[in-house]
Amino acid sequence: MSLSLSLTVNGIARTLDLADPRVTLLDLLRDRLHLTGTKKGCDRGQCGACTILLDGRRINSCLALAISHDGADILTIEGVAQGDQLHPVQAAFIAHDGLQCGYCTPGQIMSAIGLLREAQTGDDPERVREAMSGNLCRCGAYAGITAAVLDAQRSMADAGRAHAA
């Protein structure tokens, strides 16, 4: 039994044949599409390193069967920069030292982009920490991560106002 799957990944339409329906979205991205920016940390939904945006919402890609998401639109860390121009969240993580070893960082950044799209936290650091609680950082860069998310939120709002003006 071979199953066919269509996905849009970082704006590019992909059609894939799956020999085994049990392949997770994470393994598909890493092993079939060679998009290894999405990390496999715990592979059981506890760490958030595999966070991607699925139809605009953040999920753990280790907890999803690829075949369940036929037709979905997926954004991974490889798709967030515009050429050489970093996404404001990426730039803010660098500016605020929101990382040390970097392993959790793609998941943190995808989660932060999802958080900013949800627009539920405002500028309250405690709400940001709560909304980022699905992403663990074993180096403990949380203070920088929270500052980076708040800063990215400000810079994106400023850019939005400048664009509108």
Partner: peptide, 12 residues
Amino acid sequence: AAQIGGVQIQNT
């Protein structure tokens, strides 16, 4: 609903 897992879990 806000305390079950992180947002990634709550979304699925």
